[in-house]
Simulated assay, not measured.
Amino acid sequence: MMASASSDVSQFHHTPSYCEENVYLLCKKLCADGVVDASDLFVVFISNEHKHIPLWHQKASHRADGIILWDYHVICVQKKRKQAKSVDLVWDLDSTLSFPSTLASYVSDGIRPSFELFSEFQRVFRIVHAPLFLRYFASDRRHMKDSEGNWMSPPPEYKPIVAQDGTVHNLNQFIEMSTKDVLEDVGEDSVNAVFTKQLGVLVGESQLEQFFSCISS
């Protein structure tokens, strides 16, 4: 199975409102199916301190342009590190764009950095190397229950994800981010850090494509 612009999205597990778990399973399936090595995958959390981030071409939107305001969203970026001229890809199970999309087209059409936003809607991207994410991420889904303990959206049928060290919930650590904490500049040190830091690195929307262009074999 080869990654292409026409991969069958229906072959991947998807539970509405549980994008972090959907991406967790997507990473595992891409590796299990031989599409890509885990070392070539990066999990990207998108949010900000206000928990208001706009994305376009989202299936959950009721507008023609597909815009929706998420509190946070999670996608997977594929970077073939051993192929110098390879195209970076975005796997987003909630997008109406090609699956996968090229990173350039996803940024241009789905993120639209050229669209002038008020400061409260400025997006921050937490880039986490997939092997670290698969090892450390955990969610008992507490964030999807209201004050009375009722589900705000039906949970997946499978058991909650537990980290390899036994941690049962740390989703909040991944989605807490602020524009003031993004990298001042993208350099060798910051790129190298993504391979060692459990919570990855934070970049602004103008730095996203540059960050991945700096990753080499």
Rank of each mutant, 00 (worst) to 15 (best):
S108R: 15
F125Q: 06
R126Q: 09
S217P: 05
S61Q: 11
Y72R: 09
K85M: 00
G187M: 00
H143C: 14
S7F: 02
Q83P: 02
N48R: 10
I111Q: 11
A193Q: 14
T179A: 13
E49I: 02
V74W: 11
F137P: 03
S206R: 13
V43K: 04
W151L: 11
H62Q: 15
A5L: 09
Q122F: 10
L132V: 08
S47E: 12
F121T: 04
R63F: 00
P113G: 12
M152F: 08
T196C: 11
A60V: 08
Y158P: 06
I111V: 12
L26G: 03
D88Q: 00
Y106R: 07
F212C: 04
M152R: 10
L208I: 12
V186T: 15
E49C: 10
D109T: 13
D140Q: 15
V35H: 14
Y24H: 14
C31F: 00
F118I: 03
R81G: 00
S98I: 04
R63G: 01
L69S: 09
L93C: 04
Q58L: 12
V107E: 05
F45H: 05
F137K: 11
V201S: 06
S139I: 11
V43F: 03
F121H: 12
L199T: 01
I67R: 05
G200K: 10
